[in-house]
């Protein structure tokens, strides 16, 4: 059995989460359509383009050819691809690669902002992307300062809170309406009526918000993040499970699989915290996959 140091395992988790998130969005950029339209198709944006000497035709194209908008939207996909690779290649002192990942985090902020605007400025839409926006930063902190460093852990906790606060707010459906696909996926997977699905989602919404609180209460934080990891995983795979079908081209994998992959931070970040906080029996090494162990509190750590 391969014996892996716990910190390496935790780092591996963060790399995996970051890679999946960037890779999923790379697929969206190259294969589908990234959600930047709302940022670009504004009268104010056109006026701004003109101020920079970029003409209308150059900006939006002639109709027969792509304009700058299309060209650069496609090129953004290459940045996501590069970031996907960086999550695997970045090392402790690779400062340029780390800077690249921080840039990747900024890309996620822009993307999440675009989705937020598309969702008629519903706050949960932006907040629930917290895990995706922050996982590159967490990976960089983990490399630069250590997987148990206060900054790494706090950032990961903030990310988990954002994910589940956003999910919870939507699932509750009080101030912001529950997205119809939440109900649809629940109905299809569990073979239940939409009203039953709504009740289940409301319960899940309450639990999501409890996770956000439980994370900060030492006796229940492990249980909270374990629940978050399981629920985060289930909600991530709900899209392919509900949507894929043998009757579709490629079984619908090209439509749905990336939706689960890019949501990897939703279960990997809670998992990272779970293993981080799990009581250690063997301080230096652990066996994968069954005996993953944690070190005792190390210098410069918090929360363990």
């Amino acid at each position: 059995m391969t014996r892996v140091k716990p910190d390496q395992f935790l780092l591996l988790l963060l790399r995996l989460g970051g890679f999946c998130c960037f890779a999923g969005w790379t697929w969206v950029h190259f294969y589908w359509e990234a959600p930047y339209g709302i940022l670009l198709w504004q009268d104010a944006t056109f006026k701004l383009a003109e101020r920079f000497g970029i003409g209308w035709g150059e900006f939006v194209g002639s109709g027969n050819n792509d304009g700058l908008v299309q060209v650069w939207l496609t090129r953004v996909g290459w940045l996501y691809l590069i970031c996907s690779i960086l999550t695997l290649t970045v090392r402790k002192k690779s400062w340029i690669q780390m800077a690249g990942l921080i840039g990747g985090s900024c890309l996620f902020v822009v993307l999440s902002y675009a989705k937020y605007l598309s969702a008629q400025s519903q706050l949960p839409m932006f907040i629930e992307h917290g895990g995706q926006m922050l996982i590159p930063v967490i990976l960089v902190f983990a490399l630069a300062k250590g997987v148990r460093h206060r900054a790494t852990i706090i950032t990961a906790m903030v990310a988990v809170v954002m994910i589940f606060a956003g999910h919870g707010a939507y699932a509750l459906g009080y101030h912001w309406p529950t997205p119809a696909n939440f109900l649809g996926m629940t109905s299809i997977i569990l073979h239940i009526e939409s009203e039953t699905a709504r009740i289940i989602l409301r319960i899940a919404g309450v639990l999501d918000l409890l996770v956000c609180i439980g994370l900060f209460i030492r006796p229940i934080r492990q249980a909270s993040v374990l629940y978050a990891a399981v629920w985060g995983f289930l909600t991530a795979i709900a899209r392919p499970v509900a949507g894929m079908s043998l009757g579709l081209n490629y079984w619908g994998a090209d439509q749905y699989l990336h939706e689960a992959v890019l949501r990897a931070p939703h279960f990997i970040l809670p998992l990272y915290l779970f293993f981080l906080w799990r009581k250690s029996e063997a301080p230096d090494t652990l066996e994968l996959p069954t005996a993953i162990q944690d070190k005792k509190a190390a210098p410069q750590t918090c929360g363990s």
Partner: peptide, 20 residues
């Protein structure tokens, strides 16, 4: 450089335009 600067500004403007 011109295009990158424009893109950054566009992001701000888009949000601002909606706010306006």
């Amino acid at each position: 450089a011109r295009i990158v600067t424009f893109c950054c500004a566009a992001l701000l403007i888009a949000g601002g335009a909606l706010a306006q």
